[in-house]
Nucleic acid binder design. Structure first.
Length: 427
RNA sequence: GUGGCCGUAGUGUAGAGGUUAACACGCUAGGUUGUGGCCCUGGAGGCGAGGGUUCAAUUCCCUCCGGCCACCCCA
């Protein structure tokens, strides 16, 4: 019986790592550019944190969490998303005592017990950002801009931004009851699945995938028509700020989509989503929104917050689809080929070269031809050949593997070889 | 959790109820005396697991596991 990786997990093999490096590098670069600092939180938390933070009624909490009792009898859950943990850390570590707002980002695996599908696995990785402690629309615009810049930096083209405003918890009741009434009056036109949805989560009927429902939803009451006062001002200001972005990022555009809702309970006001040009079924690349009630729900002082999460696997999927070129790692500068009884001399030389910061690999003990082939397959820049003859004379053959590369005899010590390899003579 | 399609070497494919299960790429060993890429020859490596039908199953049936796709939901 052979072991297999658990369902819905993936081995990220060396050949795939260039994509991951590309994504991590872009995330770090853009985060730094916007003044975000990294935070790492534990991979597991008290189960209650997610029940409270994400929402007891959500599917994530209801059926997708990896929860277990540890040996001390505490209920522990593998993190299904990042925001709740970051907010917990903000409260627990008194980050409200520093300059506000606090800008943070994370890159970490998330765990959800789901049926694997295209773009959906049980362990996936997210790059996410959170800005806590400022409720002004400038911050909303900043987060949205950050998302735009990040996806662009990855080399993905043609992605779309949609946004909506869910209002505030107080004002939302009116909206939901009108929405409920609208659909209830047309319940015979709804497919079974959306009739059920209407009972469970009326908002979610809006983003149904059934065409008939979508048509109905187009004329349904719109959340943005129910916001007023400060929420209204916030929204208008945000749209103006986004319009300003168009003069900075020539490609930038957005659309207000009143059918956009989010699955997690903690969102209020601004919600947004980035998706690829030809979105598949699990297409969302990046999604987020404002969560002003969350810190309070988790026991902190009322503190506004906003952020997004983005799936790295989905980004890579899209990058591959669009054939985005990523930087391939370089092979070693030197592969040492040892013949006959020169093994220990070769190993010593390899160590000496590494000590001098020259990347060096010792070829396996095989025929010279096999060792040469090995060096070639590694993409090595040079090969250093040591035979009994060379060792006796205190020299080494240094050969460049570049097309038309030459071969020279260099004295057998790490200094001469490293400087020769890096000199112009070796071209 | 529901539904559809599918599981043959590392990868991509071919195959038939009955001898040694094929091909390509990859890996590996050779192909003049100590020199990679191209070419030639050899070698290793496989029927997802467990039951059942049958004289005989990798092939037919069932279950499980896994993959892909869609729903649910979401990054």
């Amino acid at each position: 019986m052979n072991f297999k990786r658990p369902r819905g997990t993936a081995d990220i093999l060396p050949e795939d790592q260039p994509y991951w490096s590309h994504v991590y590098a872009a995330a770090r670069k853009i985060a730094a550019q916007f003044g975000y600092q990294r935070i790492d939180t534990p991979s597991f938390e008290d189960t209650k944190l997610f029940q409270r933070g994400v929402g007891d009624a959500t599917d994530i909490v209801q059926k997708e969490m990896y929860s277990f009792e540890d040996h001390g009898g505490d209920s522990i859950t593998l993190r299904p998303e990042g925001t709740a943990s970051v907010c917990r850390a903000y409260i627990e570590n008194g980050l409200h005592n520093g300059p506000q707002p606090v800008r943070m980002f994370y890159m970490a695996p998330m765990f959800r017990y789901e049926r694997p599908q295209a773009g959906r696995v049980r362990q996936h990785h997210q790059f996410g950002v959170e800005t806590i402690g400022d409720g002004s629309p400038e911050v909303d615009a900043e987060i949205i801009e950050l998302g735009w810049k990040y996806i662009s930096e990855l080399g993905i083209k043609g992605f779309k931004l949609r946004l909506n405003n869910l209002g505030d918890p107080e004002g939302r009741a009116d909206y939901i009851s009108d929405l409920d009434r609208y659909f209830t009056e047309r319940i015979d036109q709804l497919p079974k699945i959306d009739q059920d949805r209407l009972q469970r989560a009326p908002l979610r009927v809006l983003d149904s995938k059934v065409k008939e429902t979508q048509t109905l939803a187009d004329d349904a009451p719109k959340s943005v028509d129910y916001i007023g006062g400060e929420t209204r001002d916030h929204w208008d200001a945000l749209l103006a700020l986004l319009d300003n972005l168009k003069s900075v990022y020539t490609e930038f555009s957005y659309s207000v989509d009143h059918r956009l809702v989010r699955g997690l309970d903690y969102y209020n006001r601004t919600v947004f989503e980035y998706e690829p040009a030809d979105a598949g079924s699990q297409g969302t690349l990046l999604a987020g929104g404002r969560y002003d009630p969350l810190i309070g729900i988790l026991g902190g002082q009322e503190t506004p917050g906003i952020g997004f999460g983005s799936g790295i696997e989905r980004m890579i999927l899209e990058m591959k689809k669009q054939e985005v070129r990523v930087e391939q790692p370089e092979g070693p500068e030197i592969v040492v080929v040892a013949l006959g009884d020169t093994g220990s001399v070769a190993a010593g030389l390899a160590a000496g070269l590494r000590a001098a910061d020259v990347s060096t690999v010792l070829a396996p003990k095989r025929s010279i031809k096999a060792q040469m082939r090995y060096a070639n397959n590694l993409g090595a820049a040079n090969v250093v050949i040591l035979g009994d003859r060379e060792v006796k004379q205190g020299v080494a053959q240094v050969k460049s593997l570049a097309e038309g590369g030459g071969q020279s005899e260099v004295s057998l010590n790490a200094e001469s070889i490293s400087s020769f390899v890096r000199s112009d003579e070796n071209q």
